[in-house]
Structures are given as structure tokens and as C-alpha cells.
């Protein structure tokens, strides 16, 4: 597998550089090197404040690194954004945690769903396309004329996924896509993501605080702590034989609070 995405010596801070006093302390992300092979499923794990959400926002171009380089498909993201911004966005899509706030409450589902196509391909999708996108995520065309508040969290999250996939991206980033959902809905959304990944040959980057979810879905895992990568590798290896004390604590805590069947 070739590496679709790679970052090297990546630094990021929300403060602009001129306001920073010390060059080395308190970076939100510090010295991050990750590689994401095409077609893989990568989990980004960490506690709140570890910088996992910030990392995916850097990778998909919503934030710009303070230092360091991100390469997407052999070309620097900086160049992508200055020369081929729309094409980069088309190929990198993201789904967020809160289904209630991922869709504009004032727009009908139809409109929200058409937005990426209108923005990136400069055309209006026809009704058949809209229905087929919804069918892909297991929803019927009935929801098209509804408003977000008329739908459940699980339905909204499916629509957010359909919206992201409507422009046929290469990479789908999912930032805690199930942590605001009930456990029964969580299973449906995770299955949906795994199925879509298979069908469309996506690269899936899943941010989660829940190791049990990552262990089910992701082949590879990156463990973040305080803005640094503490461990990365195959999920099976990282979880069965953690190399660092922090990962071990994380795995044990997850084991203690996850459901154990007899």
C-alpha cells in the first residue's frame, strides 16, 4: 500500500507565532509524524485535550500547521490549498461528533445534502442522485424535505455521512462520530462506516476516545497524549502488547469500563 497521507515533524498551536514566548513548550501538537496508507482504517485515540481533533483538522486542511509539512497524494497540502483547493477538499471530507450541530438547522436536508456538490462541482445534484446518496446510508428519500430538528441523532449522523461522501472523497475523517449516540445507534453507524469503506474503497480516519470502538473498526491506531504521538502501529499489536505505560493504562481503563461478556 502506498501512503496517501503523511506528516513529518508537524507542530501546531492555536496562538499565532508572534504571541508565543517559548519555542518549545505548550504546543497543541508537537513533532507529529504519521503515515496513512491508502485504503486503510486508522484510529486516532487519546483523552480530551490530547490534540486528536486538532490533528484531523490539520490533515483535512481545516487548520494550517505552524511548522512542518503534510503530504497528501505526493504533494504538500500547502500547495494543494493554494493551487487546487477545491480538489483537495473534494478528496478529503469530514464528519463531526454532534449530529445536532453538523447540519444547518435552517436548511432542509435536501439543501444541506446538495451543498458540497454545489460548492465543489459547481452544479446542482438532481433528485435521483440525492435519493441514491441517502439509500447508500440506509435512509429513504422521505427525509429530503425535512428539517434537522425533525430527525433523530442517528438519522442526522447518516445524513452527515451521506453529505461527506456525495463528492466521492478518497479520505473520510470521522471525529467521534458515535460518541453522542446511543449504543444501539452507535453499532448501526459503525457498521455503516465499515460498509461504505469497503464499497467505496475509502481511507477512513476515525477519532475516538473509545478503544473498544477503535479495536473493532481500525487496522491501525495512533495514540496521542498531550499533543504527542506516544505509540502507533497495528491495532492488534498496540492493544495486546502496549509498548508504553500510557497506552497500557488506557487499555486497562477501557477493559475495566467496557462490557465483558461471560
Amino acid at each position: 500500500m502506498t501512503d496517501l497521507l503523511a506528516s513529518d515533524r508537524l507542530f501546531f498551536d492555536y496562538q499565532t507565532r508572534s504571541r508565543r514566548r517559548d519555542a518549545n513548550s505548550d504546543w497543541t501538537l508537537r513533532d507529529i509524524a504519521v503515515t496513512i496508507p491508502a485504503g486503510s482504517t486508522v484510529g486516532v485515540v487519546g483523552e480530551s485535550g490530547s490534540g486528536k481533533s486538532t490533528l484531523v483538522r490539520l490533515l483535512c486542511g481545516l487548520l494550517t500547521p505552524s511548522k512542518g509539512e503534510i503530504t497528501f497524494d505526493g504533494r504538500s497540502v500547502k500547495d494543494w490549498l493554494s493551487e487546487d483547493r477545491l480538489e483537495f477538499h473534494r478528496r478529503n471530507q469530514i464528519v463531526f461528533q454532534s449530529p445536532a450541530s453538523s447540519l444547518d438547522p435552517r436548511l432542509r436536508i435536501k439543501t444541506s445534502l446538495s451543498e458540497p456538490t454545489r460548492a465543489l462541482e459547481r452544479r446542482k445534484p438532481d433528485p435521483a442522485e440525492l435519493s441514491s446518496w441517502l439509500k447508500d446510508v440506509g435512509l429513504s428519500g422521505d427525509v429530503l424535505s425535512r428539517y434537522p430538528h425533525q430527525l433523530s441523532g442517528g438519522q442526522l449522523q447518516r445524513i452527515a455521512v451521506a453529505r461527506a461522501l456525495s463528492v466521492r472523497p478518497d479520505v473520510l475523517y470521522a471525529d467521534e462520530p458515535t460518541s453522542a449516540l446511543d449504543v444501539s445507534v452507535q453499532a448501526q453507524v459503525l457498521n455503516l462506516l465499515m460498509g461504505l469503506k469497503q464499497r467505496h474503497g475509502l481511507t477512513l480516519v476515525l477519532v475516538s476516545h473509545d478503544l473498544a470502538v477503535v479495536a473493532r473498526v481500525c487496522e491501525q491506531v495512533v495514540v496521542l497524549k498531550d499533543g504527542q504521538v506516544v505509540e502507533a502501529g497495528q491495532t492488534v499489536e498496540v492493544m495486546t502488547d502496549p509498548k508504553t505505560a500510557y497506552t497500557r493504562t488506557l487499555v486497562e481503563a477501557s477493559r475495566a469500563t467496557s462490557l465483558a461478556r461471560f
Binding site: S184, A215, R216, A260
Partner: peptide
């Protein structure tokens, strides 16, 4: 439906 902590990842 609960993914639980997988024993055989």
C-alpha cells in the same frame, strides 16, 4: 450491540 472489550482483536 455493545462492542465491549474485544478479547480477540
Amino acid at each position: 450491540v455493545n462492542p465491549g472489550h474485544p478479547e480477540d482483536i
